[in-house]
């Protein structure tokens, strides 16, 4: 028993010496708290630049102009900011926003909160919007980006810009410059990445702007489908409008992807 206690005491002494040296023998440096999450460099951004960023997102990453254009698929947004106060008191409004900024943000993530008359999903009597939630899916704007677009809409709509430049937004994933992207492996992936579903009903997507593609293989041959992707205006299906589909998919896709898509679509019967 005595030996046992000696061993215990020796162990504790050794550990105590090590701990004591670490606590008192060397200086204690208090490390910095973790940095605030990496940002798009918003800290140094002026409101003008922030609005410009919003415009860029509106025309680019946000894919807004796909529908919000002068072809009547979705309302034009030029003056929307000025119209908001009226909409907030409209009996058809179902959201919870109390000011312009909140309304606009809400309209991005819950588009059905207010549907402009005549722009709702078919058969829903303007209660459900065909617009996707831009914070999810393939568009996936983050909070800072949404705010930038709101700032742009407020500015271009002639309303007062109330948005504050956020300081704690996650960093924008940088586009890898110059490096070719890896090719899409499956048609589903290509559909998701290229945003086909925003307009077409295809795969798991439910777009209604363009023709339903779920049975397209039974209606069209491969040559037609290939042309429809490369030059969308060459032949417009009845009931749909010209210039709706971006004409540059041919430039966005690799040849192997184009063929994969054509094969995939031709197989949908």
């Amino acid at each position: 028993m005595r030996q046992f206690l000696m061993v215990v005491a020796f162990t504790l002494l050794t550990v105590g010496l090590f701990a004591g040296y670490s606590n008192f023998g060397i200086p204690q440096i208090e490390p910095a708290q973790p940095p605030k999450q990496e940002k798009i460099d918003l800290g140094a951004m002026t409101m003008d630049k922030f609005i410009a960023l919003g415009e860029k997102i509106f025309n680019g990453k946000g894919t807004c102009t796909l529908c919000h254009n002068n072809l009547g698929r979705a309302p034009m947004l030029g003056g929307t900011a000025g119209l908001v106060p009226k909409r907030l008191v409209d009996p058809r409004y179902k959201g919870e926003a109390t000011n312009v900024e909140e309304y606009l943000i809400e309209s991005f993530v819950k588009p059905s909160a207010f549907v402009v008359a005549g722009f709702g999903k078919k058969g829903t009597n303007d209660t459900v919007s065909p617009m996707p939630d831009v914070s999810a899916g393939s568009i996936r704007l983050n909070d800072a980006e949404i705010k930038a677009v709101v700032a742009y809409l407020q500015d271009s709509g002639g309303a007062e810009v109330t948005v504050k430049i956020p300081t704690d937004a996650p960093e924008q994933t940088e586009q890898t410059e110059g490096e070719p992207r890896a090719p899409f492996e499956t048609p589903e992936q290509a559909i998701a990445e290229l945003g086909c579903g925003a307009c077409h009903k295809v795969a798991t997507e439910e777009g209604e702007v363009g023709p339903d593609l779920t049975k397209i293989g039974g209606l069209r041959d491969k040559a037609y489908l290939r042309q429809a992707i490369l030059d969308p205006n060459a032949d417009i299906t009845e009931g749909f409008e010209k210039d709706q589909m971006p004409p540059d998919y041919g430039a966005q896709m690799y040849a192997q992807e184009l063929e994969m898509m054509v094969d995939y679509l031709a197989g949908l019967k």
Partner: peptide
């Protein structure tokens, strides 16, 4: 708890 502790703190946990 994401911060990095001081050396003494770490040594105490290790002990």
């Amino acid at each position: 708890d994401a911060f990095t502790p001081t050396l003494g703190y770490a040594a105490n946990v290790v002990s």
